[in-house]
């Protein structure tokens, strides 16, 4: 644990600031929570590798002063898998958009979860394709509007938590950018957990999702994260089962971690040869 007060300037590449995100975009709050999590864990910057795909969310990898790879839309987990297998000592963190993680990257997502490889996936769920102009994503939800669904979408959404759980992720949590401190704590737990960790963070895209769905500005969208979510198992669910639950849904330490299991195979193969 570090005693020094947190100063984000020690963890960013200031030449890229002010950052590119729109006024009020929740992605910047996720960035802040991630930096605080790293600080409180007392991690060395050289121990961390951030791998991201393409999207507004994925731009995080350019802003942090860690090892970073800004790769291909949907494939960040595959790059992270390669990095992690060759350098298992690194902490692999993958900030992802909802489209990045669960549309084009859905296959990579379920297999990373199935393998239980020690990677922390932070799904920055703004329920839309922000970067490319507001197309609907597999997280938008039925009846929501997007540039590609002017009369509203008919698609049912994924539940990121349930999907991650059933695909085999061994740490699964959810929070929102309104609850920035909770986000930080969940990211810390996810990074410390040995295995595939998924932290879904609800984050506002006021520019596209907010405007298309008349959900107001960034402030109103954050207010709705306060009113529409509760801690897991809250009494409020009895009256309103539609409230979105926040907290840790899965924390399982009984499943072998992929890099360690692979290492055992290498050891066995070496013996076989000798």
């Amino acid at each position: 644990m570090t005693e020094k007060p947190f100063n984000f300037k020690n963890y960013i590449r200031p030449r890229f600031f002010p950052h590119i995100w729109c006024p009020g975009c929740g992605h910047g709050i996720v960035l802040g929570s991630l930096l605080r999590a790293v600080h409180e864990l007392g991690l060395n910057k050289n121990e961390i590798v951030i791998t991201s795909g393409i999207g507004c969310s994925s731009r995080i990898s350019g802003y942090v002063d860690f090892h970073s790879l800004h790769t291909i839309h949907g494939r960040a987990l595959s790059f992270a898998t390669g990095v992690k297998l060759s350098k298992p000592g690194l902490k692999a963190i993958v900030p992802m958009g909802d489209g990045d993680a669960l549309a084009i990257g859905g296959n990579h997502f379920i297999h990373a979860a199935r393998r239980n490889i020690d990677i922390t996936a932070i799904v920055m769920n703004n329920r839309i394709y922000g970067m490319t102009g507001g197309q609907f994503s597999p997280l938008s939800g039925t009846g929501k509007k997007a540039t590609t669904a002017p009369y509203s979408t008919i698609d049912r959404p994924f539940d990121v938590v349930e999907l991650a759980r059933s695909a085999g992720a061994t740490f699964v949590a959810r929070s929102t950018v309104f609850h920035a401190n909770e986000c930080k704590d969940l990211i810390k737990k996810g990074i410390s957990h040995k295995g595939f960790s998924v932290i879904e963070i609800l984050t506002q895209c006021p520019t596209y999702y907010g405007r298309k769905n008349k959900e107001g500005d960034a402030i109103q969208m954050m207010e709705s994260y306060k009113t529409d979510t509760v801690k897991i198992g809250s009494k409020k669910l009895e009256k309103n089962p539609d409230l979105i639950q926040r907290g840790i849904f899965v924390e399982n330490t009984d499943v072998p971690e992929y890099c360690e299991a692979y290492d055992e195979i290498i050891q066995a193969a070496m013996k076989g040869k000798a």
Binding site: W21, G24, G28, I29, G32, S33, F178, A180
Partner: peptide
């Protein structure tokens, strides 16, 4: 304010820190 600023534009320095 510091925690929720999306632009990392605000820092609170407590006297004594």
């Amino acid at each position: 304010c510091e925690l929720r600023c999306p632009d990392l534009a605000i820092q609170i320095i407590e006297d004594g820190e």
